[in-house]
Structures are given as C-alpha cells and as structure tokens.
C-alpha cells in the first residue's frame, strides 16, 4: 500500500464515516476490521500520518483513523463524547483537563517543541539572534499572547529582558509563518517544527533563549466504556509505536525533540 490511498482514507474519516468505509473498500488493504481512532494536535499531522501508515502495514486488518485539530478543539470533542481511542495534544494543559475529567489514562510525554525565528529565504534582514529582533524598523510578526505560541513567545522574551516591537500579533502560528513565507514580514517567531514543515519557503534561526518555553506533547489512551481487552492492547501498541525508536526517529526528522 502506498502512502496516497492511506492519506485519502484518513482525510475521508474526518469528513464522514460512511465515506471512509466506502474508500476503505476500494483500498488494497485486505478487509480492515479493527479501527484505532487517533485524535492528534494539528502540528503532529505529518508525523502521525507516517506512524499510522507504518502501524497499518505492521498490523494486518487494522485501520488507523486520524482526526487532526487544535489541542483545545480535541479536548472539547472528547469531552462531548467523540469516539477516540488515543489522544495526543500539543501541550500538557489540554491533556490535564482530560485527566481531571477522568476521560484518559495516565499520559506520557513523547516529544517537545520549542520556538525558532523564521526568516524569508536568504535572510534579507540578516537576523542572527533574538536581540536582532528588537530593531523597531524591522517587520517582525509574532503570535498574539492569547494563543499558545504567543504565550511561549511572551515567556521567552520577558525571560531574556528584551522588548520586541511586532508589526502584527497573529491569531495562529500558521498566520505568522504565512506572513514570512510571502515576504511581508522580515522575521517571525514560530516553532522549530513549523520551520521544518515550511520547507524551502523559510529559513530557521535558532536562539538560546528558546529553552525558557519548551512545549511538551503528551499521549494517552482514552478511557473506554466497554472493556474490550484485545482492542485496548492494540491501542497500547499504537502508543508504544509513537514512543518507540521508529516513531521517535520520524518525529526527530520533523524537528521534534525527545522529552
């Protein structure tokens, strides 16, 4: 099975279960019977698509369905009773809410992510450090303090005792990245994995102060109402796959760091 039909099927699963069933029937997979539904933070998209694909290859008759969204949306969906087997969030705060509600088992940290400066190709403004971003004439774009990446930016900047003069405080990290990719901004503060994901569109400039705000990604099994031990074992195998050497190598390739 190539990556293409898998990806198409994963997307379809998000749209409608019926569509997913229809497409699964067309795939080369011999009769997918068991399904593992994985809710994962959007920043894990590439990593989890690959891990899910490898897991399906290794486990005959198992279909992994990925639901990718912002961590707070994933938490809200699970709280509303969405049928998830595994949840992986981009921060411990979201996972803690699920733990407090008794909706998941004990979470385990499997990756971390930290901030990096993104600049357009060739680094026209010659940015080399966090201090370089304090130039008031620079077109600097950051996340608004209200969203997670902005909170991390604020923590790093106040920790270093610097003052930034951003021309825009964006809604999300992807908005910041877009402004850098199109060359509107001279620099932006995003996550290491965003720079890795953007490919040749941006260059990353790492800075030592980033250590002041490291994001930890936890993963946990969602507590099931019906006790199906076979299925629970399969779910645990998926969690192990994420934490295992192969999963960790994939995550490292995408810029994540082991906890």
């Amino acid at each position: 099975m190539t990556a293409q039909p898998h990806r198409a099927r994963a997307t379809a699963a998000l749209l409608a279960a019926s569509a997913a069933v229809g497409l699964a029937g067309c795939s080369t997979d011999p009769g997918a019977e068991t399904t593992v539904t994985v809710f994962a933070a959007a920043s894990l998209t590439e990593a989890f698509e690959q891990i899910a694909h490898d897991f399906e290859t290794a486990h005959d008759g198992v279909d992994v369905r990925l639901s990718l969204a912002g961590s707070s949306d994933l938490v809200a969906q699970i709280q509303q009773g969405a049928p998830a087997d595994v949840v992986a969030s981009a921060d411990t705060a979201s996972m803690d809410r699920l733990v407090a509600d008794g909706l998941v088992g004990t979470p385990q940290d499997f990756a971390t992510n930290s901030l990096e400066i993104a600049v357009p190709p060739g680094n026209p403004a010659g940015i080399a450090s966090l201090e370089d971003l304090t130039d008031p004439d620079l077109h600097l774009v950051v996340c608004a303090p209200q969203v997670p990446c902005g909170a991390a930016t604020t923590a790093v900047v106040s920790d270093s005792g610097l003052t930034l003069h951003p021309v825009s405080e964006e809604q999300s990290v992807t908005d910041v990245l877009h402004k850098v990719v199109v060359g509107e901004a001279d620099a932006g503060i995003v996550y290491v994995t965003d720079v890795a994901r953007a490919g040749p569109g941006v260059e990353g400039v790492s800075f030592p102060q980033a250590g002041a705000a490291v994001n930890t990604y936890p993963i946990a099994a969602v507590t099931q109402t019906d006790a199906d031990t076979d299925h629970a074992a399969l779910v645990q195998q998926f969690i192990d796959a994420v934490q295992g050497p192969e999963g960790q190598r994939l995550l490292a390739d995408l810029g994540f760091v082991a906890p």
Partner: peptide, 8 residues
Amino acid sequence: ITFAGSLQ
C-alpha cells in the same frame, strides 16, 4: 487577517 495582520 491575511493581508493586514492584527495589531491593537
């Protein structure tokens, strides 16, 4: 939000 950005 795409073209102008967002600053108070």
